[in-house]
Design a protein around this nucleic acid. Structure first.
Lengths: 129, 129
DNA sequence: CTACTGTACTGTTGTGCATAGTACAGTATG
DNA sequence: CATACTGTACTATGCACAACAGTACAGTAG
Protein backbone atom coordinates (compact mmCIF):
# COMPACT_ATOMS: atom_id res chain seq x y z
CA UNK A 1 0.00 0.00 0.00
CA UNK A 2 1.40 3.30 -1.08
CA UNK A 3 0.47 6.43 0.81
CA UNK A 4 1.00 9.89 -0.59
CA UNK A 5 0.81 13.13 1.28
CA UNK A 6 0.69 16.74 0.19
CA UNK A 7 2.12 19.23 2.62
CA UNK A 8 0.71 22.72 2.37
CA UNK A 9 -2.73 21.43 1.49
CA UNK A 10 -5.69 22.81 3.40
CA UNK A 11 -6.42 19.22 4.43
CA UNK A 12 -4.34 18.25 7.47
CA UNK A 13 -1.67 15.65 6.78
CA UNK A 14 -2.98 13.21 9.37
CA UNK A 15 -6.42 13.49 7.72
CA UNK A 16 -4.94 12.62 4.35
CA UNK A 17 -3.38 9.50 5.84
CA UNK A 18 -6.67 8.57 7.49
CA UNK A 19 -8.65 8.99 4.29
CA UNK A 20 -6.29 6.91 2.20
CA UNK A 21 -6.12 4.02 4.62
CA UNK A 22 -9.88 4.11 5.05
CA UNK A 23 -10.34 3.99 1.35
CA UNK A 24 -7.91 1.10 0.94
CA UNK A 25 -9.61 -0.81 3.71
CA UNK A 26 -13.14 -0.16 2.52
CA UNK A 27 -12.37 -1.14 -1.06
CA UNK A 28 -10.47 -4.24 -0.06
CA UNK A 29 -7.03 -3.09 -1.12
CA UNK A 30 -5.99 -3.72 2.45
CA UNK A 31 -7.15 -7.16 3.56
CA UNK A 32 -8.46 -7.83 7.04
CA UNK A 33 -5.60 -8.67 9.34
CA UNK A 34 -2.95 -7.11 7.14
CA UNK A 35 -0.20 -5.30 9.05
CA UNK A 36 0.48 -1.61 8.54
CA UNK A 37 3.89 0.03 8.50
CA UNK A 38 4.95 1.01 11.98
CA UNK A 39 4.47 4.55 13.16
CA UNK A 40 8.18 5.29 12.93
CA UNK A 41 8.71 3.58 9.59
CA UNK A 42 5.82 5.34 7.85
CA UNK A 43 6.85 8.65 9.38
CA UNK A 44 10.37 8.24 8.02
CA UNK A 45 9.02 7.22 4.61
CA UNK A 46 6.76 10.27 4.34
CA UNK A 47 9.28 12.54 6.07
CA UNK A 48 6.86 13.35 8.86
CA UNK A 49 6.81 13.38 12.61
CA UNK A 50 5.92 10.00 14.15
CA UNK A 51 3.33 11.79 16.26
CA UNK A 52 1.43 12.70 13.11
CA UNK A 53 1.20 9.08 12.01
CA UNK A 54 0.29 7.97 15.53
CA UNK A 55 -2.53 10.48 15.50
CA UNK A 56 -3.83 9.17 12.19
CA UNK A 57 -3.65 5.55 13.35
CA UNK A 58 -5.35 6.39 16.62
CA UNK A 59 -8.21 8.01 14.73
CA UNK A 60 -8.57 4.89 12.58
CA UNK A 61 -8.67 2.70 15.68
CA UNK A 62 -11.37 4.94 17.12
CA UNK A 63 -13.38 4.42 13.95
CA UNK A 64 -12.92 0.65 14.00
CA UNK A 65 -10.81 0.49 10.84
CA UNK A 66 -7.61 -0.60 12.53
CA UNK A 67 -6.64 -2.53 15.63
CA UNK A 68 -3.49 -1.93 17.62
CA UNK A 69 -1.42 -4.51 19.44
CA UNK A 70 1.05 -3.23 21.98
CA UNK A 71 4.58 -3.93 20.80
CA UNK A 72 3.44 -5.66 17.61
CA UNK A 73 1.91 -3.05 15.40
CA UNK A 74 -1.30 -1.97 13.74
CA UNK A 75 -3.52 -4.31 11.75
CA UNK A 76 -6.62 -3.96 9.62
CA UNK A 77 -9.61 -4.76 11.83
CA UNK A 78 -12.41 -7.14 10.92
CA UNK A 79 -15.45 -5.38 9.50
CA UNK A 80 -18.07 -4.88 12.12
CA UNK A 81 -21.07 -2.69 12.65
CA UNK A 82 -20.10 -0.21 15.28
CA UNK A 83 -22.95 2.19 14.63
CA UNK A 84 -26.71 1.90 14.75
CA UNK A 85 -28.63 2.39 11.54
CA UNK A 86 -29.73 5.81 12.68
CA UNK A 87 -26.21 6.85 13.60
CA UNK A 88 -24.90 5.66 10.26
CA UNK A 89 -27.53 7.73 8.49
CA UNK A 90 -26.70 10.79 10.54
CA UNK A 91 -22.98 10.47 9.87
CA UNK A 92 -23.54 9.99 6.18
CA UNK A 93 -25.63 13.13 5.90
CA UNK A 94 -23.06 15.05 7.86
CA UNK A 95 -20.40 14.47 5.21
CA UNK A 96 -22.85 14.43 2.31
CA UNK A 97 -24.18 17.95 2.68
CA UNK A 98 -20.96 19.88 2.16
CA UNK A 99 -20.13 17.56 -0.71
CA UNK A 100 -23.49 18.16 -2.38
CA UNK A 101 -23.22 21.91 -1.86
CA UNK A 102 -19.90 21.93 -3.68
CA UNK A 103 -21.06 19.60 -6.44
CA UNK A 104 -24.19 21.62 -7.10
CA UNK A 105 -22.24 24.84 -7.17
CA UNK A 106 -19.96 23.29 -9.76
CA UNK A 107 -23.03 22.71 -11.90
CA UNK A 108 -23.47 18.97 -11.50
CA UNK A 109 -27.00 17.63 -11.02
CA UNK A 110 -28.06 14.52 -9.13
CA UNK A 111 -27.80 12.33 -12.20
CA UNK A 112 -24.28 13.40 -13.02
CA UNK A 113 -23.12 13.11 -9.43
CA UNK A 114 -24.29 9.50 -9.39
CA UNK A 115 -22.42 8.76 -12.58
CA UNK A 116 -19.23 10.36 -11.30
CA UNK A 117 -19.40 8.41 -8.07
CA UNK A 118 -19.85 5.13 -9.91
CA UNK A 119 -16.91 5.94 -12.16
CA UNK A 120 -14.72 6.80 -9.21
CA UNK A 121 -15.61 3.64 -7.34
CA UNK A 122 -14.93 1.42 -10.32
CA UNK A 123 -11.58 3.06 -10.76
CA UNK A 124 -10.69 2.37 -7.15
CA UNK A 125 -12.07 -1.15 -6.89
CA UNK A 126 -12.33 -2.84 -10.28
CA UNK A 127 -13.67 -6.03 -8.72
CA UNK A 128 -16.83 -4.57 -7.21
CA UNK A 129 -19.43 -6.94 -5.88
CA UNK B 1 -34.04 32.27 3.54
CA UNK B 2 -33.28 31.01 6.98
CA UNK B 3 -29.71 30.33 8.01
CA UNK B 4 -28.78 28.26 11.01
CA UNK B 5 -25.40 28.03 12.63
CA UNK B 6 -23.93 25.67 15.20
CA UNK B 7 -21.20 27.12 17.35
CA UNK B 8 -18.80 24.61 18.79
CA UNK B 9 -18.95 22.47 15.67
CA UNK B 10 -15.68 21.40 14.10
CA UNK B 11 -16.89 23.11 10.94
CA UNK B 12 -16.06 26.82 11.07
CA UNK B 13 -19.07 29.10 11.35
CA UNK B 14 -18.26 31.06 8.22
CA UNK B 15 -18.01 27.75 6.37
CA UNK B 16 -21.49 26.75 7.55
CA UNK B 17 -22.87 30.01 6.23
CA UNK B 18 -21.10 29.51 2.91
CA UNK B 19 -22.43 25.97 2.52
CA UNK B 20 -26.03 26.90 3.25
CA UNK B 21 -26.11 29.85 0.88
CA UNK B 22 -24.40 27.77 -1.78
CA UNK B 23 -26.99 25.09 -1.37
CA UNK B 24 -29.88 27.55 -1.49
CA UNK B 25 -28.47 29.15 -4.61
CA UNK B 26 -27.68 25.89 -6.38
CA UNK B 27 -31.11 24.41 -5.69
CA UNK B 28 -32.94 27.58 -6.68
CA UNK B 29 -34.20 28.50 -3.24
CA UNK B 30 -32.40 31.77 -3.73
CA UNK B 31 -33.29 33.27 -7.10
CA UNK B 32 -30.77 35.06 -9.28
CA UNK B 33 -30.66 38.73 -8.32
CA UNK B 34 -32.20 38.22 -4.90
CA UNK B 35 -30.70 40.42 -2.18
CA UNK B 36 -29.07 38.95 0.89
CA UNK B 37 -29.28 40.31 4.41
CA UNK B 38 -26.59 42.87 5.04
CA UNK B 39 -23.43 41.84 6.81
CA UNK B 40 -24.46 43.63 9.99
CA UNK B 41 -28.08 42.46 9.94
CA UNK B 42 -27.24 38.79 9.47
CA UNK B 43 -24.51 39.04 12.07
CA UNK B 44 -26.99 40.46 14.59
CA UNK B 45 -29.53 37.78 13.70
CA UNK B 46 -27.09 34.92 14.22
CA UNK B 47 -25.36 36.66 17.13
CA UNK B 48 -22.04 36.68 15.36
CA UNK B 49 -19.32 39.12 14.52
CA UNK B 50 -19.94 41.05 11.28
CA UNK B 51 -16.44 40.11 10.20
CA UNK B 52 -17.46 36.46 10.15
CA UNK B 53 -20.36 37.14 7.79
CA UNK B 54 -18.22 39.40 5.65
CA UNK B 55 -15.72 36.57 5.34
CA UNK B 56 -18.42 34.13 4.27
CA UNK B 57 -19.86 36.54 1.71
CA UNK B 58 -16.41 37.32 0.36
CA UNK B 59 -15.77 33.61 -0.15
CA UNK B 60 -19.06 33.29 -2.03
CA UNK B 61 -18.14 36.22 -4.27
CA UNK B 62 -14.81 34.57 -4.99
CA UNK B 63 -16.68 31.43 -6.05
CA UNK B 64 -19.11 33.34 -8.26
CA UNK B 65 -22.19 32.59 -6.17
CA UNK B 66 -22.79 36.18 -5.03
CA UNK B 67 -22.09 39.66 -6.33
CA UNK B 68 -21.39 42.65 -4.15
CA UNK B 69 -22.41 46.24 -4.81
CA UNK B 70 -20.66 48.89 -2.79
CA UNK B 71 -23.14 50.55 -0.47
CA UNK B 72 -26.09 48.50 -1.72
CA UNK B 73 -25.55 44.97 -0.57
CA UNK B 74 -24.95 41.43 -1.76
CA UNK B 75 -27.03 39.75 -4.47
CA UNK B 76 -27.23 36.27 -5.95
CA UNK B 77 -25.08 36.25 -9.06
CA UNK B 78 -26.18 34.96 -12.45
CA UNK B 79 -25.09 31.37 -13.09
CA UNK B 80 -22.02 31.28 -15.19
CA UNK B 81 -19.30 28.81 -15.94
CA UNK B 82 -16.25 30.07 -14.17
CA UNK B 83 -14.29 26.84 -14.42
CA UNK B 84 -13.10 24.71 -17.32
CA UNK B 85 -14.47 21.20 -17.63
CA UNK B 86 -11.19 19.79 -16.42
CA UNK B 87 -11.10 22.11 -13.42
CA UNK B 88 -14.68 21.22 -12.52
CA UNK B 89 -13.78 17.55 -12.63
CA UNK B 90 -10.73 18.08 -10.47
CA UNK B 91 -12.67 20.05 -7.88
CA UNK B 92 -15.41 17.48 -7.74
CA UNK B 93 -12.98 14.65 -7.11
CA UNK B 94 -11.28 16.69 -4.43
CA UNK B 95 -14.44 16.82 -2.33
CA UNK B 96 -15.72 13.43 -3.45
CA UNK B 97 -12.82 11.33 -2.17
CA UNK B 98 -13.12 12.12 1.54
CA UNK B 99 -16.87 11.73 1.25
CA UNK B 100 -16.57 8.33 -0.37
CA UNK B 101 -13.99 7.20 2.15
CA UNK B 102 -16.38 8.02 4.96
CA UNK B 103 -19.40 6.50 3.23
CA UNK B 104 -17.57 3.26 2.47
CA UNK B 105 -16.31 3.02 6.02
CA UNK B 106 -19.88 3.37 7.20
CA UNK B 107 -20.72 0.35 5.10
CA UNK B 108 -22.60 1.96 2.23
CA UNK B 109 -21.90 0.71 -1.26
CA UNK B 110 -22.08 2.63 -4.53
CA UNK B 111 -25.71 1.73 -5.10
CA UNK B 112 -26.84 2.87 -1.67
CA UNK B 113 -24.84 6.09 -1.86
CA UNK B 114 -26.61 6.96 -5.09
CA UNK B 115 -29.98 6.33 -3.49
CA UNK B 116 -29.16 8.43 -0.45
CA UNK B 117 -27.98 11.32 -2.59
CA UNK B 118 -31.15 11.26 -4.66
CA UNK B 119 -33.27 11.22 -1.52
CA UNK B 120 -31.34 14.11 -0.05
CA UNK B 121 -31.64 16.21 -3.18
CA UNK B 122 -35.37 15.63 -3.47
CA UNK B 123 -35.78 16.68 0.10
CA UNK B 124 -33.90 19.89 -0.54
CA UNK B 125 -35.41 20.79 -3.91
CA UNK B 126 -38.82 19.11 -4.39
CA UNK B 127 -39.19 20.67 -7.83
CA UNK B 128 -36.23 18.98 -9.46
CA UNK B 129 -35.97 18.95 -13.24
C1' DC C 1 -27.15 65.45 6.04
C1' DT C 2 -28.27 60.89 7.76
C1' DA C 3 -28.52 56.16 7.80
C1' DC C 4 -27.76 52.49 5.75
C1' DT C 5 -24.60 49.47 2.75
C1' DG C 6 -19.68 47.17 1.69
C1' DT C 7 -14.68 47.19 2.73
C1' DA C 8 -10.34 47.33 5.08
C1' DC C 9 -7.62 47.58 8.51
C1' DT C 10 -5.38 46.51 13.61
C1' DG C 11 -5.35 43.98 17.35
C1' DT C 12 -6.37 39.79 20.73
C1' DT C 13 -7.80 35.23 22.04
C1' DG C 14 -8.34 30.43 21.47
C1' DT C 15 -7.74 26.20 18.98
C1' DG C 16 -5.71 22.83 16.15
C1' DC C 17 -1.79 21.04 13.22
C1' DA C 18 2.79 19.63 13.08
C1' DT C 19 7.04 19.58 14.91
C1' DA C 20 10.92 18.00 18.47
C1' DG C 21 12.23 15.43 22.22
C1' DT C 22 11.86 12.16 25.96
C1' DA C 23 10.18 8.31 28.32
C1' DC C 24 8.05 3.89 29.30
C1' DA C 25 5.66 -0.58 28.37
C1' DG C 26 4.87 -4.72 25.47
C1' DT C 27 6.75 -8.17 21.83
C1' DA C 28 9.97 -10.81 19.16
C1' DT C 29 14.58 -12.56 18.27
C1' DG C 30 18.94 -14.01 19.49
C1' DC D 1 19.02 -12.46 29.61
C1' DA D 2 19.96 -8.34 26.01
C1' DT D 3 18.63 -5.95 21.98
C1' DA D 4 15.72 -3.97 18.78
C1' DC D 5 11.84 -3.43 17.39
C1' DT D 6 6.70 -2.16 18.32
C1' DG D 7 2.78 1.09 20.56
C1' DT D 8 1.79 4.85 23.89
C1' DA D 9 2.04 9.02 26.59
C1' DC D 10 3.66 12.93 27.85
C1' DT D 11 5.73 18.19 27.48
C1' DA D 12 6.91 22.10 24.85
C1' DT D 13 7.30 25.10 20.74
C1' DG D 14 6.06 27.46 16.29
C1' DC D 15 2.61 28.41 13.24
C1' DA D 16 -1.79 29.17 11.00
C1' DC D 17 -6.50 30.15 11.20
C1' DA D 18 -11.13 31.11 13.18
C1' DA D 19 -13.67 34.37 15.65
C1' DC D 20 -13.87 38.13 18.22
C1' DA D 21 -13.67 43.63 19.23
C1' DG D 22 -13.08 48.00 17.58
C1' DT D 23 -12.30 51.62 14.29
C1' DA D 24 -12.39 53.81 10.01
C1' DC D 25 -13.60 55.03 5.31
C1' DA D 26 -16.17 54.84 0.83
C1' DG D 27 -20.42 54.21 -1.86
C1' DT D 28 -25.80 54.44 -2.05
C1' DA D 29 -30.45 55.89 -0.97
C1' DG D 30 -33.81 58.61 1.49
Amino acid sequence: MRIQVTTGSSIPIYRQVVDQIRHASATGKLAVGAPLPSVRVLAAELVLNPNTIAKAYAALVRDGVLESQQGRGYFVAARREIYTRKERQRRLEEVMDPFLAEALTLGFDGEQIGVEIRKRLEKLAPSTE
